[in-house]
Simulated assay, not measured.
Amino acid sequence: MSSTPAHKFKIGLITATIWNNDGFFSVDLTRSYKTQDGDWRNTSSFGHNDLLNLSKCAERSETWIAKQLAANT
């Protein structure tokens, strides 16, 4: 797998990172948050308020991957 993402989508605190491993795509979905020390971290745990942006990032990722696969056929 490449060390560089194929693409990213960010909506609010939610990020979808798309990876391309020789034509097999995978997606990491994360939420950013700030610690008490002011450092930014990521988690794969989502609250109720995150779900709409999470679903939008997932949908955009699916559309982007489908276009990549269609272009390569």
Rank of each mutant, 00 (worst) to 15 (best):
M1V: 04
M1G: 15
S2Q: 14
S2Y: 04
S2C: 06
S2V: 01
S2M: 12
S3P: 08
S3H: 09
T4H: 12
T4I: 15
T4E: 15
T4W: 06
T4L: 14
P5R: 00
P5N: 00
A6R: 10
H7Q: 08
H7A: 08
H7T: 00
H7K: 12
H7E: 06
K8C: 12
K8N: 10
K8D: 07
F9T: 03
F9G: 01
K10V: 10
K10Y: 00
G12H: 01
G12I: 00
G12F: 01
L13S: 15
I14H: 09
I14A: 08
I14P: 14
I14D: 13
T15Y: 05
T15F: 05
T15K: 13
T15I: 13
A16Y: 03
A16E: 10
A16H: 06
T17Q: 07
T17V: 09
T17P: 09
T17D: 04
I18N: 05
W19Q: 04
W19C: 05
W19E: 08
N20V: 08
N21T: 06
N21P: 04
N21I: 03
D22T: 06
D22S: 12
D22W: 03
D22H: 09
F24D: 12
F25S: 07
F25L: 08
F25T: 03
S26V: 04
S26I: 06
V27Y: 03
V27K: 05
D28V: 02
D28L: 11
D28I: 00
L29Y: 14
L29P: 05
L29E: 09
T30C: 10
T30P: 05
T30Q: 13
R31W: 02
R31P: 03
R31K: 15
S32K: 15
K34W: 08
K34P: 01
K34D: 02
K34I: 13
T35M: 07
T35Y: 02
Q36K: 08
D37T: 15
G38N: 10
D39K: 15
D39I: 05
W40E: 12
W40F: 11
R41T: 00
N42G: 02
S44L: 02
S44I: 10
S44N: 15
S45R: 12
S45P: 00
F46H: 04
F46C: 04
F46S: 06
F46T: 09
F46L: 07
H48S: 13
H48A: 10
N49D: 14
N49E: 14
L51K: 10
L52C: 04
L52P: 01
L52S: 11
L52T: 11
L52N: 11
L54V: 07
L54H: 01
L54I: 01
K56M: 02
K56F: 00
C57H: 01
C57A: 13
C57L: 03
C57V: 02
A58E: 10
A58L: 08
A58H: 03
E59G: 04
R60G: 09
S61P: 03
S61F: 01
E62S: 12
T63I: 15
W64I: 11
W64N: 07
W64S: 07
W64Y: 15
W64G: 07
I65H: 02
A66L: 11
A66H: 11
K67W: 02
K67H: 08
Q68P: 05
Q68A: 14
Q68N: 09
L69R: 14
L69W: 02
A70M: 11
A70N: 14
A71Q: 12
A71Y: 02
A71L: 14
A71R: 13
N72V: 13
N72G: 06
